[in-house]
Design a binder for these strands. Structure first.
Lengths: 113, 113
DNA sequence: GAATATACATAGGAATGCGATGCATTGTAC
DNA sequence: GTACAATGCATCGCATTCCTATGTATATTC
């Protein structure tokens, strides 16, 4: 089972930032696998959405990159910048609050209890 | 404070369906106000996004409509169809599971505790 | 009688993730 | 030893989805 992709919208950047916060540095393919693993295949981040996101984060100077060669194969590592760490905290707490509101709205766990 | 609109993406239809499930029948403007009220202004559903959504639900036969006149002003009520009720349960539980997964992923409340 | 709230609706655009595709290297199975 | 799967980078065009802006009209309040 995989979540319908519309739900991922708006959360992808936050997911990537959070993973980088927890793992110091990661490369693209590693991120896709880590998300699959952590969510037991429920969330699949495709490369077509991940790489544009990583490039956007780089452009916003929220991550820095270093390129390494593993044998002849290139590997591009992404790490949070100082601004990226701050942004991560903001995004994570915003998402947490949003989910709290949604939980209440959907009556999954009423606030008034 | 209002949530950045990207977060709403993918959840709007579910919110509308759930409100209709809880209130039997509602009209557009009423829905926007109810969401504002329930979320303490944190989620603002604009008419530009709501009406296309309602029309889409109607087209999918998940809701039925009845038009009434309040004085000379028209009012269009929306109610869940039988298929709509089923769909609502599906969408709500899918969103609940998704949020559970996200909560774990963001380390807000680890599953393993 | 002016402003605000109620109530419907659409058109155009921005954002964002997805599917498809492409290239190259490395490991594995037969 | 060679075919296939996995690893690893990346881009393009599409589809979806929501928002802003706009438009129309009535009801209410001051």
């Amino acid at each position: 089972m995989t979540y319908s992709s519309e739900l991922i919208k708006g959360t992808l950047k936050t997911i990537v930032l959070k993973l980088l916060a927890d793992n110091k540095r990661m490369y693209g393919y590693e991120i896709t696998q880590k998300v699959k693993e952590l969510t037991l295949d429920r969330i699949q981040i495709t490369e077509g959405s991940l790489y544009p996101t990583l490039h956007a984060l780089e452009h916003e100077k929220l991550v820095t990159t270093e390129t390494e060669y593993i044998g002849k194969r290139i590997r591009k590592y992404y790490s949070l910048s100082s601004a990226g760490k701050t942004k991560t905290r903001e995004k994570v707490s915003e998402l947490a609050e949003f989910m709290d509101t949604m939980t209440f709205l959907l009556g999954i766990k009423p606030k008034t209890s």
